[in-house]
């Protein structure tokens, strides 16, 4: 289904951008209000509901003891899955994850994996036999642009606050102690900032209308030490070298803000 955006809205967005303004009164590099509710789902090991403006996302973490992959026998497993719920937008349909949902899962997965946010080796219980598997399920509840940042914030918040049962080895058997839970082994904090290029202007935290008019977008992942950990360009148009440089600079500055928010809930 094609989203239709009215000519009036379109002209208004373009005209205001030329005067260095956005329709909702924000500056180009300003986020909408960010609200994070952690431990929202009591049945999940970790969970967070994140709203950025009118975009709402829930991430839930579930843990399970399983056998490791043969190419990484001493490392835990993370599986990320995104569902674009039909309640979130009239353009979302039920069915298996489409290419947009898969891209979101993969970009967020890459950001937390490369940082690395979680020390996966510490999730190993018995080498080549038993490791923790973390399922991260992302639910898009309401859609008003910038899903990527909302999703990454929700995922990271859920992982930071998650508690998994203690697993120990007793007589060669893995015993999972559901009563005593521990936090996940966090290594490096990270965050993802998406910059959208609309008519040669670079905007942080695009709304749905701005995203409809975008030429291209770039999502940049930063670690808390200020180094890059992931980049993904989306959209049909090209970005110049200076666009990319400027975007990374903007993302670097915004990452400080996001990391300080994440530090608080940790």
């Amino acid at each position: 289904m094609v989203n239709i955006i009215s000519e009036v809205t379109k002209t208004k967005i373009y005209d205001m951008l030329k005067q260095n303004q956005r329709v909702d009164g924000r500056s180009f590099t300003e986020y909408r209000d960010i609200k994070i509710t952690t431990d929202y789902i009591s049945k999940a090991n970790g969970s967070a509901m994140v709203s950025i403006g009118n975009t709402t996302v829930i991430a839930g973490v579930k843990s399970q003891v399983t056998t490791p992959f043969s190419n990484s026998p001493n490392s835990g497993i993370i599986i990320t899955n995104t569902e674009l719920l039909a309640i979130a937008s009239k353009s979302f349909e039920y069915g298996p994850p489409n290419k947009f949902a898969v891209e979101i899962s993969r970009v967020v997965d890459r950001c937390i994996r490369e940082s690395p946010l979680i020390d996966l080796e510490k999730l190993c219980i018995v080498e080549s036999e038993r490791v923790w598997k973390l399922y991260i399920d992302i639910y898009i509840i309401d859609y008003d642009g910038n899903i990527m940042d909302a999703t990454s914030l929700a995922t990271i918040s859920a992982l930071l606050t998650a508690r998994i049962p203690q697993a120990s080895l007793v007589d060669g058997e893995v015993v999972v102690d559901e009563e005593n839970t521990v936090k996940l082994p966090v290594k490096n904090l990270c965050c993802l900032t998406t910059i959208v290029k609309v008519n040669n202007f670079l905007l942080v935290d695009s709304t749905f209308d701005e995203e409809e008019l975008m030429d291209a977008s770039i999502s940049v992942g930063f670690r808390s030490d200020g180094t890059l950990c992931a980049i993904q360009k989306c959209g049909l148009d090209s970005l110049s070298v200076s666009d990319v440089r400027n975007s990374i600079n903007i993302a670097y500055n915004k990452s400080k803000e996001l990391i300080s928010i994440l530090e608080k809930i940790r």
């Binding site: 399970q64 039909a86 399922y135 399920d137």
Partner: peptide, 12 residues
């Protein structure tokens, strides 16, 4: 459509 989240129940 009735749909249940993967994290809605004890076992994923």
């Amino acid at each position: 459509k009735y749909n249940m989240a993967p994290f809605a129940v004890n076992e994923r």
